[in-house]
Amino acid sequence: MFFLQSLLSGILTGGVYALAGIGMSLVFGVMNISNFAHGDLMMLGMYLAYFAFTLLHIDPYLSLLLIIPTAFLFGFILEKVFIHRIINHLHQNQILLTIGLGLIMSNTALLAFTSDPKILTTSYSSSAVHILGGISLSVPLLLSFVITCGIIGILFIFLSKTTTGLALWATSQNREAAQLMGINVAKMSAIAFGLGTSLAATAGALIAPTYYIHPMVGHTFLLKAFTICVLGGLGSVVGAGVGGVVIGVVESMSSTYLSSDWKDVVVFIIFLAVLLLRPQGLFGKKGEQ
């Protein structure tokens, strides 16, 4: 009973983590950049969903139709203006640039929206469905999970069936070779970063109805997204999807059977163990680092 409740709520929460992880993994795969601004991009998605809901009265899930293209454009421009300049730099400089961009985003949000946390209350915010006599599942989390699965499916088809998708995939496999084959890798990078941004913003919008919105919220999800990426194998979309669910379940199980204040430690230990024992992650190929 405990076990099932814990497992199911872990899987549902993990779904949203997965989406955040996939965005980061995609950027990493195509551009070979660890994006430390990823959490702050999620934060922007949360605010977009919040303002769409309070000002335009659009349901947060429906507002995704607005948020996805907006965030894509924002990411695309961000890449064209800043990120592409450091694509061949040292890793540490890439990390520091994205940290700098993240600080600018979160602190501008702080100036613009103040530090008051915003709560997005929908009619179904605290409703749940009860199954199997006693196990309760949060309605907004269920919805988020279904949408996440849908987005992952679409993304998978996009990457494996369309020309742009295949070009992205080729770039992530081998940047130089892709360039020699006539793929515009600069454009692919911008598209990848745009996609990564819109996935981050989507994850933010999906979590907004069950969470709260605050300029500094990115930090919480940044480290989770990294853990998920590494677990699934940096650059692997499917891996990140599974990694997200695994992390959700691990967190949930550690709170149930260990203690909720140690659950992050468990996650970080798993993170280090994966780095040491299987640095290519669960789904990555050997030598991909």
């Binding site: 872990g10 919220v217 959700g248 967190e251 949930s252 709170s255 149930t256 909720s260 204040d261 659950k263």
Partner: peptide, 20 residues
């Protein structure tokens, strides 16, 4: 007795223990 780290999205496991 459930102590938690702030800012987590999911407190359900802790609350389920309390409920039990």
């Amino acid at each position: 007795n459930e102590k938690y780290q702030q800012g987590q999205p999911d407190y359900r496991p802790s609350l389920a223990k309390v409920k039990a």
